[in-house]
């Protein structure tokens, strides 16, 4: 059940979790009143969350030559939030060059580096930010995330612990620490911190989802089932439902032999996030076990259309093909599976 975590981290993709972290606000908001007309308009768009248009406004301001250095900052953050990482990089590098004493500037630049998988740069940026302001839980959390991505688990642990010390009421730090422990099989600690996260935020579907997975790995079966069900229930009442609780519960049900129920959960996971390979993979695996080979094949092909380089998908699809009697397809995907492992 650790696939989601490792997939998110090891590939350094900008995940839901990244935005979940950033939602705490990275922005040292400027005052719209103190800025020029164009910039004021852009700042209003920014505050409304219309980052694409805001970025356009800040860009115009800069091109007209009427902007101050702060516009680079907002341009960078707007681009970051609208997914234009390269553009964000240019703006934020310019900003920290002009204002090297801005801890927020370094922090946001670090996030951009992280999104671009430039992990060494990200580490340097977060350290620069922390040198300017050592009391930032968010910079520590982000630093920890980079260390997780680079498999420096001891350093990640230290950063998450520091973040937790800085804000005892923040549910994210124990969550991240719990997830880290889950990844390195320190399951008892993982359970403890995920429980703490869930206590601090009783609506955290992810904390409950992964806590359920940890309980399963610890052999605490009834607690696992109960916790995973709770995650699914919480998710049902959430305004923006998450695929993770359905994925984790679906995996649990698959492993404990409740295949039909597993399919139901995994279908929901796929519907909620049609871009997640893991949900397709687990759904296909369950369907394969139910001998619903045609549908398993369909979902594996869907997953491969998202990530054609994942050897696990080709291996399972190869198996499905062989069992369908399609030897050519089986061979083809086994060859692909092996080639992507090299």
């Amino acid at each position: 059940m650790q696939l989601v975590w490792s997939c998110m981290l090891s590939r350094g993709k900008v995940s839901v979790l990244l935005f979940f972290l950033l939602s705490n606000a990275l922005v040292r908001a400027g005052s719209p009143q103190s800025a020029g007309k164009e910039k004021r308009r852009a700042l209003r768009l920014f505050q409304k969350g219309d980052y694409g248009k805001a970025a356009h406004g800040f860009q115009n301001e800069i091109e007209k030559g009427t902007s101050d250095t702060e516009s680079y900052y907002y341009l960078g953050v707007s681009r970051l939030r609208s997914g234009d990482f390269q553009g964000a990089l240019e703006a934020l590098e310019r900003f920290v060059k002009e204002v090297p004493e801005s801890s927020e500037g370094w922090l946001n630049l670090g996030v951009v580096y992280f999104a671009l998988q430039r992990f060494d740069n990200a580490i340097r940026a977060f350290h620069s930010s922390l040198q300017l302001d050592a009391e930032q839980p968010l910079a520590n959390k982000m630093l920890g995330r980079v260390y997780v991505a680079t498999e420096k688990h001891a350093l990640a642990e230290r950063a998450f612990v520091r973040a937790m010390e800085l804000d005892r009421q923040d549910f994210q730090s124990p969550y991240l620490l719990g997830r880290l422990y889950q990844t390195v099989d320190r399951l008892v600690e993982a359970a403890r911190y995920l429980e703490e996260s869930a206590r601090l935020n009783p609506n955290s579907v992810r904390a409950f989802s992964f806590l359920g997975a940890v309980y399963y790995a610890l052999g605490r079966d009834s607690e696992a089932a109960q916790t995973l069900r709770k995650a699914v229930e919480l998710n049902a009442s959430s305004p923006s439902p998450d695929f993770v609780p359905h994925l984790e519960y679906g995996i649990y049900l698959q492993r404990t032999g409740h295949l039909k129920e597993s399919v139901q959960q995994l279908r929901k996971a796929v519907a909620l996030n049609p871009r997640t390979v893991e949900a397709y993979f687990e759904l296909a695996k369950t369907l394969y076990r139910l001998e619903q080979l045609a549908e398993a094949r369909k979902f594996l092909e869907e997953a491969i259309s998202i990530d054609a380089a994942d050897p696990r998908l080709h291996y399972l699809l190869g198996r499905v093909c062989y069992e369908q009697g399609d030897v050519q397809c089986g061979h083809r995907h086994m060859v692909l599976s092996e080639s992507h492992r090299k």
Binding site: K285, Y288, P311, R312, L313, H314, Y315, L316, G318, R319, Y322, G330, H331, M334, S337, E338
Partner: peptide
């Protein structure tokens, strides 16, 4: 092993 399905576990690992 690959054709027979014993090279890896179902997780493909």
């Amino acid at each position: 092993g690959l054709q027979a399905g014993v090279a890896y576990i179902d997780e493909g690992t």
